[in-house]
Design a binder for these strands. Structure first.
Lengths: 138, 138
DNA sequence: CTAATTCCTTTCATTCATAAAGTCAAAATA
DNA sequence: TATTTTGACTTTATGAATGAAAGGAATTAG
């Protein structure tokens, strides 16, 4: 389904998705139109879901990056899910998981104070264990 | 530092970073060159770190998405960090965290078998708790 | 052996990006 | 108050990229 050229294209676009098709072609030994056709096919079959940017969250004022293991006492998750819907500004990902907890919530906050406010509200619906990200080894 | 137009630009580029500067300008009520100048400034001051793509991991054969809470017995983390260096294919993020464990490892695997192999090797260096991602509510 | 398919290249018209010059308003300075 | 400076924008024009169309080589199917 995907050959090595396709993988190279995905690799290049992961590094810089605003590269021109001509340049992309040069990197994978194709002409511009050939690279463009490959990319179009990768879009059509859904391998490429979209084009995005990486933003420096700290420069946006989000100095705190945290994970919250969520533990629901009741089996009724809706209050928690409604809460996270309302707090999208602070929520990066909200994974439903197997294992210890029910959810793993990835969040960002400008300050400890806003984190605290968030936790107070969160605790009305569920219990949690907090892990603050110190750095990402990747 | 960043005004509402800049935030709108970041929002649009997050949704589609391959949009033309002309189109981007139209969305935020600017001309092409003006939008382009804004974006260049956002790049220069490091707010925009880069341009990337979203890839459907399942279509690449990675059917399993998991988080591993890592617990190191010894204070000497290097064996673990060397191990993760060698396993980059399976590792999405490797966060050093405060809280219960020492690290939170985000991984992907094609099969349970390869996950099992990974865990066997991982367990030579550290203990872990495994959480499998069922879905992402976001 | 011929026809169809796939993947590519080349060509060309259209569109985009980018640099340069000019406009305007707000802020700073004398 | 008058003048200058600054910053952000628009307009214009040119060089470059995109995308559609046509054509060619290699592979597969009938």
């Amino acid at each position: 389904m995907l050959d090595t050229t396709d993988m190279l294209i995905l690799d290049e676009l992961s590094r810089n998705s605003r590269i021109t098709m001509k340049e992309l072609g040069e990197k994978v030994h194709l002409t511009g139109p050939a690279a463009s056709a490959r990319v179009a096919k990768l879009e059509d079959n859904g391998v490429i879901e979209g084009y995005s940017i990486n933003i420096d969250q700290i420069k946006l004022g989000f100095h705190i990056h945290a994970f919250l293991n969520i533990y629901t006492k009741s089996s009724y998750h809706q209050p928690y899910l409604s809460f996270t819907e309302k707090q999208k500004e602070y929520i990066i990902n909200n994974y439903k998981i197997s294992g210890d907890g029910c959810y793993l919530l990835e969040c960002r906050f400008p300050s400890n104070e806003l984190l605290d406010n968030f936790l107070i509200d969160l605790n009305k619906h569920v219990n949690y264990k907090l892990s603050m990200v110190i750095k990402n080894n990747k």
